[in-house]
Design a protein around this nucleic acid. Sequence first.
DNA 1: ACATCCCTTTGACGGATGTCAAAGCCCTTT
DNA 2: AAAGGGCTTTGACATCCGTCAAAGGGATGT
Lengths: 228, 228
Amino acid sequence: MADVAGQLAGIPLFSGLLRAQYEALSRIGVSRSFRKGERIFSEGDEGTGFYVVCGGRIKIFKVSTEGKEQILHLCGPGESFGEVSVFTGQGFPADAVAALPSTVLFFPRVAFSSLIRQDPALALNMMAQLSMRLRQFAGLIEDLSLKEVPGRLAKYLLYLSGRDGKGTVNLDVSKGQLAALLGTIPETLSRILAKLNRRGLIRLRGAQIRILDRRGLEEIALEGKRLP
Amino acid sequence: MADVAGQLAGIPLFSGLLRAQYEALSRIGVSRSFRKGERIFSEGDEGTGFYVVCGGRIKIFKVSTEGKEQILHLCGPGESFGEVSVFTGQGFPADAVAALPSTVLFFPRVAFSSLIRQDPALALNMMAQLSMRLRQFAGLIEDLSLKEVPGRLAKYLLYLSGRDGKGTVNLDVSKGQLAALLGTIPETLSRILAKLNRRGLIRLRGAQIRILDRRGLEEIALEGKRLP
DNA sequence: ACATCCCTTTGACGGATGTCAAAGCCCTTT
DNA sequence: AAAGGGCTTTGACATCCGTCAAAGGGATGT
């Protein structure tokens, strides 16, 4: 906790700033902790500032009137969320809940806004961050509308295996949550996992999945190939 | 053409700047025209700058390996596109084609980037713009994953009718394109329109649609109500 | 060890949507 | 007017997926 300014340097949103800037940031940032399942904000809440994840995982999601949820993003350490409301001035566009015990830094809107006004470099970082998010969203939209669930799942498994660099991946969220991330429901996810298992593409062992046929998964992810 | 700087003031991305700033912008902006159907850029192309629509309509979309397209956005006059690549430095994340004969202003990446570096106000406008887009995308993701096609169509019809402020709306794109915007195919769209027509919610007349039962459409848009 | 709770899996079923095919329509061209 | 092409509509059909229901499994607490 001593060197908050030092921690900030490791966050993409704030990379490449000067020492004095980190100190200014650390003066306006407030640390907050949340228990698993605790809510950070709800859709429509007034956006009084934005957050950066220090530890844990924050789930950003939308809920339909019938209660089904679509996860927009799972924010891990170093990632920021809620920035949109800083600029639009409208309420938060989605809900945020801690998917794990989490610690975040909160940056109040007005204080941060005036910082940006003085500091083009900070603004550029922020724009890059927003752009990246935009790109991710474009990808998610593409997946949701152009691929079927097996394709989205295959893509996610490959993503996890690439991130961890291993042939065995650990699901970092419950399968129900994974279903919400993929835009489907637990039953469907379960069936498709079972099918991939039977086909020999993966080996299922609870929350551990070993990738057996990477090429096959890639075909499904790219072409939405059938699995009869 | 004389007062490019004056035109710029009407664009959200550039609102509230000083005269000198508009002149700086007009010096680096290049006007380009495209015929209907002409391509501005393709996914993966190097992002050498971004665009602002002066007239016409630009379609931003993703294409699956099988050729099906999902429209991300239809940009009208005053809207910008391609900004993301200015900051990420990666290629464009989607395709852009003129849906109508169109005129755009092109702002080269390096020149604009240095402008921003000197000008926090411009940066703030840009961030607001990116944030707005992000919010739109979040909405689109929600719709695609939480609503069925009738709900998305009803929402779009209400949006058009609200924008034009009339009970009769003119589809500004072909029905095939509308299908792509809603994340479906022409056949499905046609069937659902016919169903809404039979139910007396709308009156179909080619590309003209009269809204007969606004309340009914709202129910479908919000609750994804059945239409048996 | 047992009970309980929640997550996950499996099965049966129906509805919505995409695919394939063909006919209808409108607009332009000859 | 006739012919052609592209968009739109309609039909038949397969299938994916969500819903409902119930059983299985693992973890926690008593």
